[in-house]
C-alpha cells in the first residue's frame, strides 16, 4: 500500500485534514485554496440570519407548538460584541411569554440561532423528534418550544425561570468550524435562573451529520435529564455515564460526501 492509499484508508475515520503532503515546509497549493474556501463559507454562515418558517413547520408536523422570542440584541454586529445582551430576553419577548408562563413544565426546549443558523436548520427538528419518545416514555411534561433569535446559551436561564421550568434544554448553533458549519450544541440546565454558571450545565456538542447522530444525542439528553430530575442538579457533579447503560457502542462517524 502506498502512502497515499494509507492516508485514504485512514480518512474513513476522520474529517481532519490528514496526509496533506507538503511543498517544502508549506502546505501544497490545492490545500491552501481549499482551506480558504472553507473559511469563506464559515464566515458567510456566521452572518446569515435564521429563517424560522421551516423550523416552525417541522415542529408543527410533530404536533408541537412554538413561540418566537428574541434576545435584547438588536443586530448581528452587536450580537458578536455584546454577549451580555444575548443572554437577556427583549421586553417584547417577556410580554409574549407571559401568556404561557406558569405551566411549570419538567422540560422547556429552546432552539437558539447562536453562531450558526445552518446548524439549527439542519439539526434542531430531527433532534427534538428523536427526543419525543423519551419524553413520552418518562412521562415528562413539555413546555412550548421557544425559537430564540440572537440567542446565547444563558438566554435559557431567564426564559426557563420565567416559564417556571424544572429543566431547560437549549439547542443552539455552535461556532462554525471549517469542516462543520452545521454543528448543534445541546445544553441542559436544572432549575434555570438568571446568573447560573457554565459549570452548572451539561453540554452535548457536535450534533450533526458526520458527528453525533440525532438519536444518540437524544439518548444522552434523556439520560442526563432523568438523572438531573432525580438528583436535582446539572453540571460538573453530574457526569455523563450514559454509555455505560448502552448495550452497544455508538457506530463510528459517518462519512460525509464531498
Amino acid at each position: 500500500m502506498t502512502s497515499n492509499e494509507t492516508w485514504d484508508a485512514l480518512r474513513r475515520f476522520t474529517e481532519a485534514r490528514i496526509g496533506l503532503g507538503r511543498s517544502g515546509s508549506a502546505m501544497p497549493t490545492g490545500e491552501v485554496l481549499k482551506f480558504s474556501m472553507a473559511h469563506a463559507k464559515a464566515r458567510d454562515a456566521v452572518l446569515t440570519a435564521i429563517d424560522w418558517v421551516p423550523v416552525e413547520a417541522g415542529l408543527a408536523a410533530l404536533g408541537l407548538k412554538s413561540i418566537r422570542i428574541e434576545s435584547a440584541v438588536a443586530d448581528r454586529d452587536s450580537y458578536l460584541r455584546r454577549p451580555d445582551l444575548g443572554r437577556r430576553l427583549s421586553p417584547a419577548s417577556r410580554e409574549r411569554l407571559a401568556a404561557h408562563a406558569g405551566g411549570k413544565p419538567d422540560l422547556l426546549i429552546i432552539v437558539g440561532d447562536g453562531l450558526s443558523s445552518k446548524a439549527v436548520a439542519a439539526n434542531a427538528v430531527p433532534t427534538i423528534a428523536a427526543l419525543l419518545p423519551h419524553v413520552a416514555r418518562n412521562g415528562w411534561s413539555l413546555g412550548p418550544i421557544l425559537l430564540a433569535s440572537q440567542a446565547r446559551v444563558a438566554l435559557g436561564d431567564e426564559a426557563g425561570e420565567f416559564m417556571g421550568a424544572r429543566c431547560v434544554a437549549m439547542l443552539i448553533g455552535e461556532r462554525p468550524g471549517l469542516s462543520s458549519p452545521d454543528s448543534l450544541g445541546a445544553y441542559l440546565t436544572f432549575a434555570p435562573k438568571v446568573g447560573r454558571k457554565d459549570a452548572e450545565r451539561n453540554c452535548i456538542s457536535n450534533i450533526r451529520s458526520g458527528g453525533l447522530s440525532h438519536e444518540e444525542a437524544a439518548f444522552k439528553k434523556a439520560w442526563l435529564l432523568k438523572e438531573a430530575l432525580r438528583r436535582g442538579l446539572t453540571g460538573v457533579d453530574l457526569k455523563d455515564e450514559s454509555n455505560f447503560a448502552l448495550e452497544q457502542q455508538p457506530p463510528p462517524a459517518a462519512i460525509t460526501a464531498v
Binding site: 481532519a16 485534514r17 490528514i18 496533506l20 517544502g24 515546509s25 508549506a26 502546505m27 468550524g177 469542516s179
Partner: peptide, 25 residues
Amino acid sequence: GIPGADDIMLNYQSTSFHDQLYLRE
C-alpha cells in the same frame, strides 16, 4: 499542531503541522 490547522472538534483554526515546520526553517 493540528492537521491542516482545522480543529474539527472545537471548531476553530490553530497552527498546522506545516506551520511549525515553516517556523523551524
